[in-house]
Computed example of a mutant assay.
Amino acid sequence: MGPYGDWLLEDTAAVCRDLDCGSAVYGEKRKDFPQSPVWWVSSDCVKKFAVRDCVYDSSSSSSSSSGLEVKCSDSVRLVSGPSLCSGSVQIWDQSWTWVCEGALDQQGAEVLCRELGCGAPSLLQGALSPLEQTFHCEGHESALMDCPRSGSETCSSGAAVNLTCSEPLRLVGGASRCAGTVEMRHRGEWRRMEPNRHWLLEDISASPVWGVLPYCVKKAAVRDCVDDYSSSFSSSSGLEVKCSDSVRLVSGPSLCSGSVQIWDQSWTWVCEGALDQQGAEVLCRELGCGAPSLLQGALSPLEQTFHCEGHESALMDCPRSGSETCSSGAAVNLTCSEPLRLVGGASRCAGTVEMRHRGEWRRMEPYGYNGPWVLEDTAAVLMFLLFFLRFSTPDG
């Protein structure tokens, strides 16, 4: 079978589905097969239809040295979840059966996530009680079905344990758990990511890397975006990133806007009234954004959690007077301005454009492959400045 188009892990999941195997662990195009007739299969089609319904009619006379190599988990899978690393747990025992609430503990979840080629478990629902626990894992096992079992109770889907594993990424060598060089686990091996030149690169000792396609990660999980040719890559480049390790904005229209969450063993919502203007300024600065321009549900001092003076480098450095959590519907919403400003002009809407990046303000140098800087490019900059900076100070 010859894959046609960009083949992602979700496409491999369709093959595993049609084989009645478990979840997709990896799938990649190989180009080292003997030249022979193949069936060309559309990756877009298999997301919705059976694989056999996605063969190109014109491929009956096709010959190629490419083929698709896949690995599916043969005894466990996550179903009905938002991603390949999240869902309700099923095991293969003559047929696919649900794993019940309470049958799996944290160590069992770690084994299961590792078996599926995912990262560590980040959310385990319905599995914290030891009552009727089925799997007794020590954590080192390579497959969930290798763990000792004390029963085979089955249940309906509504009573099944739900598990979310993190994506198989990690940061190494940084100052915190959310800073450092990006490594990805693929086909059982941890390697640095080798990104396209449009990403920020740093010099590192040459070693094997996984090549990652930057256009792909905008719409798919990072592990779905490994370059087909990268299994033999060696490079002295790598991707250095820094993420905020204790606060984030979610479900917003941009990276500088959304509902506020903080990390306190897990991600929890910051409630209305828990944050004032000074706290919002600290938070926006921590995220590398400009000054807060819109703060909803946070103007009342009632039940205020964070008491910032405004000079702190991180929101969690501010004194706290409680740790109340709430639902997403009662969370505070914050919009920070984009890190742009105009300097040296006759008004606040004229001047030289400067951008704050990696903590430093610098002029912008127009650059691109599509010709000179045109008025529509200027309009995009002004849109940010006019919309976001209406309430910002010049040194925000």
Rank of each mutant, 00 (worst) to 15 (best):
M193L: 12
N333E: 15
V217L: 11
E312K: 07
V46T: 06
P253H: 07
R285D: 03
C155N: 03
L128H: 11
Y369R: 14
T154N: 10
V182G: 00
V374Q: 15
S266C: 10
S207Q: 14
P292Y: 05
D317A: 04
L283Q: 06
P214R: 13
Q296G: 08
Q278S: 12
G297W: 00
V15E: 04
E272S: 12
V222N: 02
R358P: 06
E376F: 04
D317R: 05
S235A: 05
Q133W: 11
Q296A: 12
W39H: 13
G273A: 06
C100G: 13
L389V: 14
C45S: 00
C243R: 01
Y4H: 13
A280W: 00
E281V: 10
G211I: 09
Q106D: 10
V250F: 10
W92S: 03
A346W: 12
H198D: 15
T12R: 01
S259H: 13
V46C: 03
A120T: 09
S234H: 11
C165R: 00
G27E: 05
C284D: 00
C118W: 05
D228P: 07
G310C: 12
L342F: 07
A160N: 00
S58V: 05
V222K: 01
Q304F: 07
D32V: 11
C16W: 06
R248H: 09
A120H: 08
V76T: 13
C72G: 11
C178H: 12
A380C: 09
Q133P: 05
S61I: 11
S43P: 02
R223F: 10
L295G: 07
G5A: 06
G117V: 02
N333L: 13
S321D: 01
G297C: 03
E101V: 06
M1C: 01
A314Y: 04
T268G: 04
C284E: 00
G158I: 09
I262W: 11
V161S: 02
V260M: 07
D20S: 13
D105I: 09
C118R: 03
V374R: 15
L171G: 02
P372D: 07
P195S: 08
Y367M: 13
P372C: 09
S42E: 12
L8T: 14
R390D: 15
S86G: 00
P292H: 06
C326M: 09
D264R: 15
C85Q: 01
A280T: 03
T378Y: 10
K48A: 11
V374F: 13
E101Y: 06
R356N: 09
N196I: 05
R356M: 11
S152N: 14
G108D: 00
W269H: 03
V79Y: 05
A160E: 00
E132P: 08
R348M: 13
V241I: 03
S259Y: 14
R114V: 05
V76K: 10
H186N: 08
L124A: 07
E303G: 09
D377L: 04
H186L: 10
P214V: 14
L340F: 14
D276V: 03
Y229K: 15
